[in-house]
């Protein structure tokens, strides 16, 4: 009865973000009638599909207690490599797409392998990966390459109609499939639970007999795969590839994951929440566009503040819990009990 009304505390950060998004959107829709149009809402997904894909992969990495800074660079590399292969070698996009996904997964697996085998900080390894991928993108081509592959163009322009005249792109469908798959992985598979266990306490996870090493490599492999997929979506959207694309995007993805309610130190959070982290990011951009007077840099400022607020709230929660755990009655065995036990077998001395 009353139980069904009680909100579990573990959902609070995610629910806060969802409320924030809904409230923000409703207020926006009241102020700017344009925002009330269904298509504006769907555009939010269309414009942010690639960010959603990348952030979803990153959520798993962060949940496992790691971090991946190479997200933006891998997006750029994928866009350039795909464009180069299609335009300068004449390969069909049907070959290039799986090839790029494979490359991203392999790149992630390599980083995960290094992190696991050499026990290096993920921050360092993925930072190196970031520089490497960004460098490779410019090595392939200094200039932007326009993609003319017919299938790629078809894919880019395809519209899936929903209610009335409003529509979404194929990218949105892809993003939702990725989201669903990752939600399944995270919550309903042994692999996913191992990821959470690792994020909670890696040492314990190992002692509990969980395959920590294998899981870690797999997490970064999936992360790399998602980055490459996001790169394909990104280049498909713009029908071009360039080494400058998605500069600093990893930071936006990290912010989206945190705003979505995932603990930066790992172990706590929901893949589903990340979607709202991404949507909040998109919503602020939309609000700024509709306002028409604010500089677009306000997006960054607001996202920065939100990230800070979420991290502060989480760390206050964590320290509150610690304090709660440490406050307990002074430990004292009652003297009477000790005397009572001592009396029968202790001779008077």
């Amino acid at each position: 009865m009353s139980r069904s009304f009680k909100i579990d505390r573990k959902y609070v950060p995610m629910l806060a973000t969802i409320c924030l998004f809904v409230a923000g959107y409703v207020i926006g829709a009241i102020q700017y009638p344009g925002m009330a149009r269904p298509q504006t809402f769907f555009n939010l997904f269309i414009d942010n599909a690639f960010l959603l894909i990348a952030s979803t992969g990153l959520t798993l990495v962060i949940l496992s207690g790691g971090i991946d800074l190479s997200v933006g660079a891998v997006i750029a590399l994928t866009s350039v490599a795909a464009a180069y292969l299609m335009e300068h070698t004449g390969l069909s996009s049907l070959i290039v797409i799986p090839l790029m996904l494979l490359m991203g997964a392999a790149f992630g697996a390599l980083m995960g392998g290094i992190i696991h085998v050499f026990k290096v900080q993920p921050f360092i390894v993925t930072l190196a990966g970031m520089f490497f991928a960004r460098g490779m993108a410019f090595f392939i081509s200094l200039d932007a390459i326009t993609i003319t592959d017919p299938f790629y163009r078809t894919l880019s322009l395809a519209r899936i109609h929903l209610i009335g005249k409003s529509f979404v792109s194929v990218h949105v469908i892809i993003a939702f499939v990725v989201l669903a798959v990752f939600m399944y992985l995270a919550h309903l598979t042994h692999f996913g639970r191992t990821v959470y266990a690792m994020g909670g306490n890696e040492q314990s996870a190992r002692l509990m007999g969980l395959a920590v090493g294998r899981t870690k490599v797999l997490v970064y492999t999936l992360g790399g795969f998602c980055s490459a997929l996001a790169g394909l979506v990104f280049s498909n959207n713009l029908l071009s590839g360039h080494g400058l694309y998605a500069n600093g995007l990893e930071m936006e993805a990290i912010a989206a994951v945190i705003i979505g309610g995932t603990l930066l130190t790992g172990g706590v959070g929901y893949v589903f929440g990340t979607m709202f982290g991404v949507l909040v990011n998109g919503l602020i951009q939309v609000l700024i566009i509709f306002n028409g007077e604010l500089s677009s840099w306000w997006t960054r400022i607001v996202i920065g503040l939100l990230t800070l607020v979420f991290i502060l709230v989480q760390s206050t929660f964590a320290s509150m819990r610690r304090r709660q755990a440490s406050i307990k009655p002074a430990r004292k065995r009652p003297a009477a009990a000790s005397d009572g036990l001592a009396a029968p077998d202790t001779p008077p001395s």
């Binding site: 042994h190 639970r193 266990a197 909670g200 314990s204 996870a205 969980l210």
Partner: peptide
């Protein structure tokens, strides 16, 4: 305690043999 505080009690007992 070598368990994971972020997982549920049930998981901590049964993880690996879910």
């Amino acid at each position: 305690i070598n368990l994971c505080p972020n997982l549920t009690v049930a998981e901590n007992i049964l993880i690996g043999r879910e």
